[in-house]
Nucleic acid binder design. Structure first.
Lengths: 234, 234
DNA sequence: ACCTGAACACCGTTCAAGT
DNA sequence: ACCTGAACACCGTTCAAGT
């Protein structure tokens, strides 16, 4: 035990080892509990030692995102743009699902790392190769937003459920009748795609396919933003 | 000056005054800089005095979101579901745009406040009244996600721009050719909807309308998730 | 030259001592 | 009963002193 600890300590600290330890620690204790001090302790190192490999916590978070991005499968060349984009995005989703904190972290960053930029470049390339104009590709990328990384834009972890503290009383049913109707259907309807609760993967693919189908329709129409100038008068 | 300070101090501290001061302070210094201690100082009060009105910082953030939600226009009844939903969402967007920190905060909450629940209820009601089945409405709400509040799921503040530190060199153009092509078009194309940079409002409405149109198509088809069971074999 | 302990300037929140 | 100062257990990061 003491030997193992020493062996671990003997392994020289590298940027890569710091980042991988940070990812593992965030997976374990959550991102809000992750601190430079705890990470240092985990690595058997004094807090200041980390600053030789990451210049500050911001850069640590950037590096952690890059580690997660590294788990995304390389693009699989396919015959049509839609399946290629779809597979890539669902692969990114798999990577991000393995690290629940990563979605939140990447959206808190102010600029993309080179690794993220490379991923975006590959997705943009799939649209361009698939016959999308530069103009349409631009709007399409905005419409995808973080969904491009397989990240769902849910508002809450469990949307149509009243706060845990408040028991779902008659009062709630009266105040939020539509929310209650939906929640009831989700809980009961065994014949639909929903078992207990929601099938997140189904919801993600539902929205993704709705968007991709919309993109394809616009592409076929030769859509251009030129017809939609700022004043909105055609 | 000292008189005014005293007058402010004389005004009794209420939950409402605490929340409004917190919103103003977050607007001013940013959400990451907002602390209980700074908020207390702003109100001319000792930090502990805040805890009489909000039980902790989490509840303060919940309350701040509720203040922003209060700026959303009441639902304007319209003839068709699409324009009603569209107007409500764009009104929410206006409220959230006035408080740039609010989008991030609402997505960090784990359960909706009653105020948020009431908003969701009204949106769900618009779909149900507009002829959407409970089943379709459920998936549609998931597909909207945080866009229901007018919140864009952009990945970064300025997506296709390399880090500020790194000058956009030839190297970048070689490594991210598609990103550069897009960035170039966005910067130059004066005839399209894009002036310098992106028109966020246009991008938001582009994606929203794409989704709403998709929803309408599914509604007309009488779409149901029953045909899309878990195994994906119809 | 490298490494690191102590220190600085903060946090959110508890708690006991004051009124 | 209410209010509040001091204290606790943390942060990220600087910096000067040690090797």
């Amino acid at each position: 035990m003491a030997q193992q600890t020493e062996a671990v300590r003997r392994t020289p600290l590298t940027r890569d080892r710091v980042l991988r330890a940070a990812v593992a620690l965030a997976d374990d204790i959550g991102i809000e509990a992750l601190s430079m001090r705890k990470l240092a302790k985990e690595l058997g190192v004094v807090p200041m030692a980390l600053y030789k490999h990451v210049s500050n916590k911001e850069q640590l978070l950037d590096g952690m995102v890059d580690v997660v991005m590294g788990e995304i499968d390389p693009p699989a060349p396919g015959s049509n743009w839609k399946s290629t984009v779809r597979h890539r995005i669902l692969s990114a989703r798999r990577a991000f699902l393995g690290h629940p904190w990563a979605a939140q972290v990447i959206q808190s960053r102010s600029s993309p790392t080179p690794v993220v930029l490379a991923y975006m470049d590959s997705v943009i390339g799939m649209f361009r190769t698939g016959g999308f104009s530069v103009d349409l590709t631009h709007h399409v990328m905005h419409a995808l937003g973080s969904r491009m990384m397989g990240i769902t834009q849910e508002l809450f972890d469990a949307p149509p459920a009243p706060r845990a503290q408040t028991a779902p009383s008659q009062e709630d049913a009266g105040e939020y009748p539509y929310v209650m109707e939906l929640a009831g259907a989700v809980a009961h309807d065994e014949d639909s795609v929903l078992g207990r609760g929601c099938d997140d993967q189904f919801e993600f693919e539902f929205a993704l396919d709705l968007l991709l189908d919309g993109f394809e329709r616009l592409r076929q129409q030769g859509w251009s933003s030129a017809g939609h100038l700022r004043g909105k008068t055609p």
